[in-house]
Design a binder for these strands. Structure first.
Lengths: 234, 234
DNA sequence: TAATAAAACTGCTATATAACAGTTTTTTGT
DNA sequence: ACAAAAAACTGTTATATAGCAGTTTTATTA
């Protein structure tokens, strides 16, 4: 795997500061991990010893609720941090689980190493702080949307989110999610997602080749949720 | 208003670092603001120039959604930060509004001053980072709860939250919220809240003197939502 | 403290969403 | 390429939640 200084993930906070003299020794302690598709590499509730970065790949991050029901809290792609909530903060345990959506490579740093380097490079700490602040922003917007949107609106919102996050090629998302994944992100059931997707298909608003989905009419979909997105200062 | 060094709000991050030499000049730039009950001192969407701390008082923090519908994202008491999402991060605007629930005093620092001091005191920046990480933790738990709990469970959860946040005296919460406030926090309607509260009253699980509420049987209420709180590693 | 406004409450009805049971299609692993 | 498993899908029914309209109680303020 590439050195951090050579890494292409420009959005990665470690990469951004990798030329700093003080970070050199720290970077030597990086571990790299290979993950097969659908492999779970973080288990909710287990002791958190460190923090992952996606080097290459796609990941879903979820919390388990009552009756083993999953709530997907976010998705991650190249350069994204994973497990950051257990990495620091008041808890010793991972509060989420993480599962690879496709074969992926991960970078790993221990909590101790990170804490050391953060207290020594204020600009890095500051960037981490901004990262958390932005994540908080998105999470609070999600709270509002879950509380105020209808199921159909939430499903449409999740389609737009997936396109924004992973992008599309030839009208199909660059990631393959199950209907259940969409349900677990949107806070509804698989059946509802299926019904809504089939309506959208009939209305010619989305593409569907087998399980693969994509957006055909962005404007119409955005219009359907516009009343919830007008006043968004995120 | 008291000097930060003399302040009783031990949970305040500024207070915690107020003895640091490097923070002295910064503290001189503190402004203090008095707020009457139900006065709104942060408007969603307006330019964010700085960040507030509750000196004494109680505040509700909300986001406005479709059709002017409010979603309360959190409550704040003595020592709590308010408006932190607009204070830094990618947005120039406040993404929330804040309203005093009773006559309150606030401390205010400008964005620029804060940014300066944060880049100079790594331990303070680190504490801010931890603060955001913990807030994110709570917000993500809230996402799961909104997606998976029933309305009744969410209302019970909000009662337990209010007791934990503001405490109770003689079996009544130390804060006076309207039924609508509970609805806007729980993600439901006023009528549902009223119905559920009246059921809980009949079951002798809560106290109600006029609009004032309190918890009578903690165990029973916790039991009702236990399936959602068992695996909580927050 | 009386008048007015706001909040709390109730019953009824409409609607959205979830749950169930079964069928068809697609994916996966050998 | 085939068998088995998983995922996608559909119709029907049950249930939870929201919306409405009106009444009563509590709070506000002139």
């Amino acid at each position: 795997m590439a050195e951090c200084t050579e890494c292409e993930n420009l959005n990665c906070l470690i990469k951004k500061h990798s030329l700093d003299e003080k970070i050199k020794d720290f970077l030597k302690n990086k571990h790299t991990i290979k993950c097969k598709k659908s492999q779970q590499f973080i288990m909710e509730g287990t002791p958190a010893h460190g923090l992952f970065f996606t080097y290459k790949g796609k990941v879903k991050v979820a919390k388990t609720g009552a009756d083993e029901r999953e709530q997907i809290v976010r998705f991650a792609k190249d350069g994204d941090i994973i497990g950051h909530r257990g990495g620091f903060g008041s808890s010793k345990y991972y509060s989420i689980s993480a599962q690879a959506l496709e074969d992926s490579s991960l970078c790993y740093f221990s909590k101790e190493d990170l804490k050391n380097i953060l207290l020594n490079i204020p600009s890095l700490t500051f960037d981490f702080m901004l990262f958390y602040a932005d994540e908080l922003s998105e999470s609070e917007t999600r709270v509002r949307k879950l509380a105020q949107m209808t199921v159909k609106e939430r499903v449409i919102d999740s389609l737009l989110y997936i396109d924004k996050k992973f992008g599309s090629t030839d009208g199909l998302f660059n990631v393959s999610l199950s209907r259940k994944d969409y349900a677990e992100y949107s806070g509804t059931t698989e059946e509802q997602v299926i019904r809504i997707l089939s309506t959208l298909k009939k209305q010619n608003l989305i593409n569907a080749k087998g399980r693969k989905l994509g957006i055909k009419n962005f404007e119409a979909l955005k219009e359907e949720i516009s009343k919830h997105t007008l006043n968004m200062y995120t």
